[in-house]
């Protein structure tokens, strides 16, 4: 049970949030021009990292805003949270 710092609301309990998968995937601007393989790469392929992972979260039972999180999946340590469109601090 994490304690997550929503960039809009501050620290809240894990149960208020929902997980949204890998972050920084960019939806192709011209999907029709992609090959099947390229489209499948975007659509299906996800990293499954043991270690620092960038992922999307939604403050579902709160402000309902989406944001990004850098989390170490090996120990669940949250390194940073940042807004959509921002880059994680290194």
């Amino acid at each position: 049970m994490f304690l997550i710092k929503c960039p809009f609301c501050g620290e809240r309990d894990h149960s208020e949030f929902s997980y949204g998968g890998e972050a920084h995937l960019v939806r192709p601007k011209q999907p029709t021009e992609l090959s099947d393989d390229q489209w499948a790469e975007y659509l299906f392929m996800r990293k499954n990292i043991k270690g620092l992972q960038y992922e999307r979260w939604n403050h579902l039972h709160g402000c309902r805003r989406w944001f990004n999180m850098a989390r170490d999946t090996s120990n669940d340590k949250i390194h940073s949270v940042y807004k959509i469109g921002e880059k994680p601090s290194k």
Binding site: P31, T32, L34, W39, A40, L43
Partner: peptide, 10 residues
């Protein structure tokens, strides 16, 4: 484009 369009041509 619309959500899901490209996949209809897989």
């Amino acid at each position: 484009d619309f959500i899901g369009k490209r996949s209809l041509y897989r």
